[in-house]
Amino acid sequence: MKRNILFVCTGNTCRSPMAEAIFRDLAVKKGLQVEVRSAGVSALDGMPISRNSALVLQERQLSDRFSSNSISREWIEWADLILTMTASHKRTLIQMHPYAVDKTHTLNEYTQDGGAELDNLTALESLYSELQLKKSLGQPISREEKDRVRDLERSIPDFDIVDPFGGSLDIYRRCAEEIERALKKLAERL
């Protein structure tokens, strides 16, 4: 069965285009039936990929012919799996498109082997949703609820892939290596 995978970052000019290109190449090599796209939660349509992202992809002999895409309802509905580069991207996307909550994950979170950290993350996301609803209904959030959020946040490792924007070519290379490690796990999982 063919899977549609959407990678998401901020401007769709650095991390998510690298993830798209690297995973597309991995998928071909592994014979995976996937279609891959990328977009940004704050992207302007049609912007070029960043210079250093293009150089990293060229070094890997991968296509660097991308232009940015902003998140759209159409693309969210198209995707079977949405993988964001950070928890902030994930939260933003879910706030914009709450119906996509079950198929939206950070890339590093999705490719983890499991354990207490992921259980705590699930509990935290559920608590966030509950508190968001309370807030929208004008209900107060208790001290205990705030403490529970803080405790859960402290127990979860950082699943974010750091934004290389404005950094050196070496920083972009390290970012691509981090993305590739997670994408190899993703390929095995699919």
Results as ranks from 00 to 15, higher is better:
residue 2 K to H: 09
residue 5 I to V: 13
residue 7 F to D: 00
residue 7 F to L: 07
residue 10 T to S: 11
residue 13 T to S: 06
residue 15 R to W: 03
residue 17 P to S: 06
residue 27 A to H: 01
residue 27 A to L: 04
residue 30 K to F: 08
residue 30 K to A: 14
residue 32 L to I: 09
residue 32 L to F: 09
residue 34 V to E: 01
residue 35 E to L: 12
residue 36 V to S: 01
residue 41 V to L: 05
residue 42 S to I: 06
residue 46 G to D: 05
residue 47 M to F: 12
residue 48 P to T: 10
residue 50 S to A: 13
residue 52 N to E: 13
residue 60 R to H: 08
residue 61 Q to G: 07
residue 68 S to L: 01
residue 71 I to Y: 00
residue 75 W to I: 11
residue 75 W to G: 04
residue 76 I to P: 03
residue 81 L to C: 06
residue 88 S to Q: 09
residue 92 T to P: 07
residue 92 T to C: 12
residue 93 L to N: 05
residue 97 H to M: 11
residue 97 H to D: 08
residue 102 D to N: 14
residue 106 T to K: 03
residue 107 L to G: 05
residue 110 Y to G: 05
residue 110 Y to A: 07
residue 113 D to P: 06
residue 115 G to I: 03
residue 120 N to D: 11
residue 127 L to D: 02
residue 133 L to S: 12
residue 135 K to Q: 15
residue 136 S to W: 12
residue 136 S to Y: 11
residue 137 L to K: 11
residue 145 E to I: 04
residue 146 K to F: 10
residue 149 V to E: 11
residue 151 D to Y: 12
residue 157 P to V: 13
residue 160 D to R: 11
residue 164 P to T: 03
residue 166 G to E: 08
residue 167 G to H: 07
residue 167 G to W: 05
residue 169 L to K: 11
residue 174 R to K: 15
residue 174 R to D: 14
residue 175 C to R: 00
residue 176 A to T: 09
residue 182 A to P: 00
residue 184 K to L: 14
residue 185 K to I: 10
residue 188 E to P: 05
